[in-house]
Amino acid sequence: MDLITILLIVVSGVVLMTMATSVIVIGLDSISEARAELRYQIRESGPYLVGLGVVYLLNKLAHQLTTTLSGVIGVNITDTLVALEGGLVGQLQAALPMEAAVWYFSFAYVFGFAFVLVFPIVAYLLLPTQRYLKELLVAYMINYGAGTVFYTLFIAYGPRRALPSEVGQPMFEQFPEIMTLTAAINTSSNVFPSLHTSMAMTVLLFAWWTRDHYPHWLWISAVFVLSIVVSTMYLGIHWLIDVLAGMILAVASVYLARWFVSWAENRKVPKPHTSIETETQD
């Protein structure tokens, strides 16, 4: 199966999941009402949407360069991760040896992750305030940027590569075509920190802050995010240390994103006229 076919399957699945969740979380009436203001909302958040697109594109274009640079300056920390963590991931796989677990966590890792990133963009775009969407998009940018820096500075192979005799790679064994997709997106030495974890946890933090607007999204996102985090280890892709580092990155990215948007929005507020200016005008 070629890359285009795989992408079409994933995109189709994510679109269906987003549509179904929109009905549950947002509601058809709210969606219909929000459409009247959609043009304004897109214009308001447009620069941030474009910014995320540019950051993602630059990240993909610079992938080969950063990989080459990492080979020159990067520090290989794989042995350190093995020494600190040992066979924890192998124990997790042994505890859940069922084929159903492979299907579930593979679904969470591929479809669930893409869905979790896309749905809040749609949901927050339909809110009267665009503050949450702007903060989310900036947090995404920070995650991608930080990931590029870490992956350049640190070379780290996941458990399936570092401990092949103890840790399996069930997703790639069950669905070998997925390797085509993952190879096009990332490199096997880019595991510290786990961006799957950091991006997913970023979404969950925003789901908590927006629970008054979308209460159902909080528990839906919690189930998906927990599944994604566990899947990164169960599938032999990340260490627990990668996951913990990803959680720290998520908290930092959200904090910085909220600060940045607050700063940017305050700059847009027109300064009030001074009393002298008012008197002069009178």
Rank of each mutant, 00 (worst) to 15 (best):
M141N: 06
I24Q: 12
G87D: 14
S22M: 05
G27H: 02
V167L: 01
V225Y: 05
I248D: 03
L226V: 15
L205C: 03
A156C: 11
H216A: 15
A257C: 14
A34Q: 02
L256K: 03
F111S: 00
W208A: 15
S262C: 12
L61A: 08
Y157F: 13
A20T: 09
P170S: 08
L96A: 11
E177A: 14
R160N: 10
I31D: 00
T232N: 07
H273A: 14
P159R: 00
L153I: 03
F154V: 00
I220A: 08
I228S: 06
T66V: 15
L125W: 01
H238W: 00
W209I: 07
L153M: 04
V15G: 10
A200G: 05
P215Y: 04
L92T: 11
T80S: 10
L57Q: 09
T182P: 06
E44F: 09
L61G: 01
T232K: 05
A100S: 12
P47F: 07
L137M: 07
E99F: 09
Q174Y: 11
G46C: 09
L92W: 11
Q64A: 15
L125C: 02
N76D: 14
M98W: 15
S198L: 03
V191H: 05
G236C: 00
F175T: 04
L88A: 13
Y56G: 12
G71K: 10
A222E: 05
T21I: 04
Y255D: 09
A245W: 00
G147D: 01
L163A: 07
S106A: 03
V191N: 01
L205D: 06
M179D: 10
M199P: 09
A250G: 03
Q174C: 13
F175W: 04
V15M: 10
L136T: 06
E265S: 07
G112I: 04
V72C: 12
S22R: 03
V82C: 09
Y151S: 01
E166M: 15
F119V: 06
Y40T: 09
V269P: 06
M1D: 06
M141H: 09
M247E: 08
P120T: 00
V11N: 12
T66C: 04
L16A: 09
F172M: 10
A83K: 14
E33S: 14
D212K: 13
L195F: 00
G112R: 07
V122Q: 01
L65K: 06
L153P: 00
S253I: 02
I142F: 02
S194K: 07
V223K: 11
L84G: 13
T197S: 02
V75A: 13
S275H: 12
A101L: 01
L126D: 01
S221T: 11
F260V: 15
W209S: 10
S194V: 01
